[in-house]
Simulated scan of single mutants.
Amino acid sequence: HIKVDGKRLTLLEPEITLLLNKPRGYLSTVKDPKGRPTVMDLLGTVRQRVYPLGRLDFDAEGLLLLTNDGALAYHLSHPKFMVPRTYWVKIQGVPDEKKLIQLKRGVMLEDGKARVVSSHILRQKEKNSWIEVTVSEGRNHLVKRLFATIGHPVLKLKRVGFGPIRLGTLPIGQYRLLTDEEIIKIKKFRVGAIHESPLRRSE
């Protein structure tokens, strides 16, 4: 402990933000009362107490940010900022153009109307297809519910973008610190500049 004039000072932890490539089979929470694996189990050498930003389903994988920066967390998670999340989604079947337009115009879910910002087919086979889709809300299971509504259940879900941050080539189960440049990009980010990426998977 450090004291000044006999008074104990509380030292603030340095602010950090991590990018984790979450594997399937991990909860996006700090602790689970049922003892299931959480993303915190993947951060063995991190001393700071960080918290996941937003949800990523237990059976989903990909980009998850964790931080102890309260201002940054607010900027990224508050609904009023409408920060886009981009996913690669493997779905059953191949949707036609009308269904993709329907998603962009909006469909009614049990908790209100929802829509995608953009979507396009990355690759298709006879029985399934990969779609890149961007949404600007963080509602529970939103992408899965959207595609279920148009008759194409989600088989796999991978988040590849959160605002201006991209997953890139980070190996699954690994994490890295966001760079100062990336933090600045997040704080300056405004909805609109959404980059579409080619599919790098072979499924």
Rank of each mutant, 00 (worst) to 15 (best):
P171H: 09
K99C: 04
I194Q: 10
R139A: 06
V160H: 09
D180K: 13
T134M: 11
F162P: 00
R123W: 05
K98E: 10
L177H: 12
L157Q: 05
G138R: 11
D32C: 09
L53P: 00
L19P: 06
T67I: 11
V117D: 04
L177S: 14
L157H: 06
L142H: 08
V83C: 04
G161Q: 14
P52S: 01
L12P: 04
K7F: 13
K80H: 02
T179S: 15
S197Y: 13
I165P: 00
E15R: 08
T38E: 03
R176M: 11
W88F: 08
P171E: 08
L43D: 06
K34T: 09
L20A: 05
V30T: 04
G161T: 02
D111P: 08
G6I: 06
I150H: 06
M40E: 00
H195C: 09
D32V: 03
A71Y: 08
L177M: 13
D59W: 11
L11R: 02
P171M: 09
D5K: 15
S136N: 11
K127W: 06
S119N: 11
Y175C: 00
Y51A: 08
I121S: 09
D32T: 03
I150R: 07
R190L: 14
L11S: 01
S202Q: 15
L122V: 00
K185S: 11
G151Y: 09
L100I: 01
K125T: 14
I184A: 12
K99R: 14
K113R: 13
E137T: 02
D59N: 15
A60T: 02
L157G: 03
R47K: 12
R47Y: 13
L11C: 09
L177E: 08
L56Q: 01
G106M: 09
M40F: 05
K80R: 04
P153I: 04
D59Y: 10
L66W: 11
K80W: 00
M108Y: 10
T86M: 10
D57S: 06
F147M: 11
A114R: 14
K113A: 12
L18Q: 04
L12H: 11
R201M: 02
G106S: 07
G161C: 15
L18N: 01
V50D: 00
G54V: 03
P164N: 05
P14Y: 15
D180Y: 10
L64N: 02
K90N: 07
R190G: 04
V116D: 05
Y51E: 07
H141A: 12
S119K: 03
G54P: 02
T45R: 15
T134P: 02
L63S: 05
L103I: 02
A114N: 06
G54W: 13
H152L: 12
Q48W: 10
T29C: 11
K99W: 05
Q92T: 03
F81W: 03
K127N: 03
T29V: 12
V39R: 10
N140Q: 08
K34G: 00
V46I: 12
R36N: 10
D69Y: 00
I2C: 10
N128E: 15
L100A: 02
R49C: 03
H1S: 14
L157C: 05
T149K: 13
G62S: 10
L27W: 10
E137M: 09
D96R: 10
V135W: 09
E15G: 00
R85K: 15
I183D: 10
E61I: 00
Q102E: 09
N68G: 03
